[in-house]
Design a protein around this nucleic acid. Structure first.
Length: 248
DNA sequence: TGCCATGTTAAACT
DNA sequence: GAGTTTAACATGGC
């Protein structure tokens, strides 16, 4: 569920509830549920992997983490996993096993909206600037940095690096400018491809390297390795993805 | 059945 | 204090 495109799809599905009044609130999230009671769900926003339910002066931040899920109108999981349920006149929304936090409205102003790769607010120049400031950082870690590429997750990371022919352990500062441009461009482009494939339930079949065994380009065995400071799985082809480090 | 994974945060370390 | 590593959390698929 959890990469940026999936959150965007969730937002789309919840959009019909925007403008409606919250009739009742329940769930085991450790927040003051009663603050939401009777409030209007005035707006739904998203930034990367985070969803924001703006309820007049209070903002509910939902993050699905690794295992979170949601449902609309019908409760599909146990009480134990139900973190938050908002009931409206014409239906309900349910969030399970996710992080739920309350913030005031001003909190939204502190967020890096320009980092959201799927948003109209996306500023590639800003991403480039942040990348240029990185010292000794591997591209695999840079792509997962939510302050630079909000919404990019491990799948997108692996697929983007294969598309642009860059080894995940490459050092950002060693990338030629052309590659850096491509990296920034594909982080957004692949996220949109992910979004469309996910919407059509054909995402997995489009994975070229993620969880795959052989390189679709040259047929050699792909490498699977936990890379970078994030220690996340990387799938890559040592033939088709060039390593840029201080030695070459 | 045990392992592992589309993620993040906080505690525990050097 | 900084930068880092580890632990914790929790569910479903293979």
């Amino acid at each position: 569920m959890p990469e940026g495109p999936s959150i965007l799809l969730m937002k789309e599905e919840l959009l019909p509830f925007a403008g409606q009044k919250i009739i009742s609130v329940s769930g085991n999230a450790r927040i003051e549920l009663q603050w939401l009671q009777g409030k209007k769900l005035s707006e739904i926003k998203s930034l990367g992997k985070q969803l924001f339910l703006v309820c007049e002066v209070i903002v509910v931040r939902i993050h699905l983490l690794l295992f979170g899920s949601y449902s609309v109108n019908e409760k599909t999981k146990s009480d134990k996993s139900l973190r938050l349920c908002l009931q409206f006149k014409e239906g309900s929304i349910y969030f399970y096993t996710c992080s739920v936090k309350l913030h005031d409205l001003a909190f939204l102003d502190t967020l890096p909206w320009e980092a959201d790769v799927l948003s109209d607010n996306w500023l590639p120049a800003q991403a480039r600037k942040k990348l240029k400031a990185l010292q000794n950082t591997m591209v695999c870690d840079a792509l997962l940095n939510q302050d630079i590429f909000a919404g990019v997750g491990n799948i997108i990371k692996n697929e983007v690096l294969f598309r642009i022919g860059v080894h995940p352990e490459s050092i950002v500062s060693e990338l030629p400018d052309k590659k850096l441009t491509l990296l920034i461009k594909e982080a957004r482009q692949y996220s949109f491809d992910f979004l469309n494939w996910k919407r059509d339930f054909v995402l997995k079949q489009h994975w070229l390297v993620h969880t795959r065994k052989t390189c679709p380009k040259c047929g050699t065995t792909l490498t699977k390795k936990y890379t970078g400071k994030t220690h996340r799985r990387s799938f890559f082809c040592t033939t088709d993805q060039q390593l840029y480090d201080k030695h070459n």
